[in-house]
Amino acid sequence: MPYINTSNNIPGIRGLMEFRPEVSKALNQLAQVLLVDDASLSRSERELIASFVSSRNECRFCMTTHGAIAANLPGCNDELVQDVWSDYTSADLSDKMKSLLHIADQVRISGLRVTENDIEVARQHGASDLDIHDTVLIAATFCMFNRYVDGLGATTPDDPEFYKKVGEQRTKEGYLTTSFLVK
């Protein structure tokens, strides 16, 4: 149960969004342009960064949702998502992705933690300015989403089926459609 009366029973972020549609429109558009994009970083890499940052912020709703979406996409699976949550440094990922996840984790702690050396390492592994920019912005965006969801006590379902369904819907439709629970 959220800390405020949202007048609906929809779990997670969509319940908060139903309460404040003017805000939700921009939030979903941001998720859409940042995550549903195969330019430079692939869609599964973007979702993995989102799920990783959420796991480190201990936001179970976002971590599980974006993990489920990532696992549905080409180049990813459930096992890889689990490995990223537990220890990304030993996961089956490119050196470029590992260096970007390191940057994402620094951003998560504080923007001021990112060093010249962190950026240099990512560049040596082939990261472009756009890759670095999008990694920082995805990490920062999930520091927002995680705080929104948990800061208002959004309902976090325990049932794995819920995340499977959300994962299927978002993989297929992106972020601009209404929750399957509203339809």
Binding site: G111, V114, I132, V136, A140
Partner: peptide, 11 residues
């Protein structure tokens, strides 16, 4: 919390 990380994370 997004903006602060975006602005300082990219120096």
């Amino acid at each position: 919390n997004l903006y602060n990380r975006y602005v300082d994370g990219l120096a």
